[in-house]
């Protein structure tokens, strides 16, 4: 397909459908993440980058036989691999008998968080989550480094009358009503993660989506007055540092890295505090990285306009 816009839309639809699929498999947290990240923000960012390039793909001179071959082989291998898998939902599958039972049975006593997903994510395997946060931070660094904006362009943009949608009165009014609610919802997702589906990743993404919506409607320079790019750059780092800092504090208090038990006298309280803080760190990093990526793309668009 050479229409990239359609490709982006299809990938969004794909994410949405797989989110429904995850929901059907009772993986609510995964579905939520897939919907917000896969269908939501990544579609948005892809559209933003599409604005920089042409909508249609250049015609390739070769036929991607190799790629096709790779895909077919991979598919065949995957199907071959499923042949001996334990059937879905079997109670005695290794997945259900080895590690998982402890998570399900002990988590309430050890961590005291009703949502087991959160306790696995933020505590049992909290270090992985730190790594994931770092992955997002790395992606942000990549975009920041590659889409550097010169100081000149920044000054130029101050004079700029921003946003194509300035004239869209209906959109502006509706968005003005919605944006506070979106941000509220983000905070709800952030802090409700202990009890229901949610957590830093989804919350950060939703928060960023709200800000991005604002930027699209009211222009980059307006939103930059509140969310300065330089400040947000700092926030991308701050989230990781918060997460890691909690780990280091645990170490200083005598535990292992990320052993929240030592944060307070009562291990369960310590776990609560720890999870709260690291989820906050995740949320901060995710939100600010998403925003910075969008901002950088928009800067680029501005720059292109000026060149023309």
């Amino acid at each position: 397909m050479s229409d990239l816009f359609a490709v982006v839309m299809l990938s969004g639809i794909y994410s949405l459908i797989s989110a429904s699929l995850f929901l059907d498999l009772d993986a609510v947290d995964v579905a939520f993440t897939e919907a917000s990240v896969g269908a939501g923000i990544s579609t948005l960012l892809m559209l933003a980058s599409l604005k920089l390039v042409s909508r249609y793909q250049k015609k390739t001179r070769y036929k991607p036989i190799l790629a096709f071959f790779v895909v077919v082989t991979t598919g065949a291998m995957l199907i071959y691999g499923t042949l001996d898998m334990p059937h879905f939902g079997t109670a005695d599958a290794p997945v259900h008998t080895h590690v998982a039972p402890r998570y399900l049975n002990e988590s309430m006593g050890e961590i005291g968080v009703p949502n087991v997903v959160t306790s696995v994510l933020a505590s049992y395997r909290g270090y992985d989550t730190l790594g994931e946060t770092l992955v997002i931070f790395t992606a942000g660094i990549g975009v920041m480094a590659l889409l550097m904006v010169s100081k000149q362009t920044k000054q130029e943009s101050k004079k700029l009358i921003p946003a194509d949608m300035q004239q869209q009165i209906i959109l502006r009014i509706v968005a003005k009503m919605m944006i506070p609610l979106i941000l509220m919802f983000a905070l709800y997702v952030q802090f409700h993660g202990d009890y229901g589906p949610g957590g830093g990743f989804q919350a950060g993404v939703i928060f960023a989506a709200g800000i991005i919506l604002y930027t699209m409607l009211f222009g980059l320079s307006t939103s930059q007055e509140v969310f300065k790019a330089t400040t947000i750059e700092l926030f991308t780092a701050a989230g990781v540092l918060l997460y890691g800092g909690v780990g280091v504090v645990c170490m200083l208090l005598g535990g292992n890295f990320l052993d929240y038990d030592f944060l307070k006298h009562d291990p369960v309280h310590g776990q609560h505090l720890g999870i709260l803080l690291v989820e906050l760190g995740v949320g901060i990093t995710v939100a600010s990285v998403m925003m910075i990526i969008f901002f950088k793309f928009t800067w680029r668009t501005v720059k292109h306009k000026y060149k023309k």
Partner: peptide, 10 residues
């Protein structure tokens, strides 16, 4: 109601 009408409009 709010979102889909606005989206259609847009």
């Amino acid at each position: 109601l709010l979102a889909s009408t606005t989206a259609s409009h847009a």
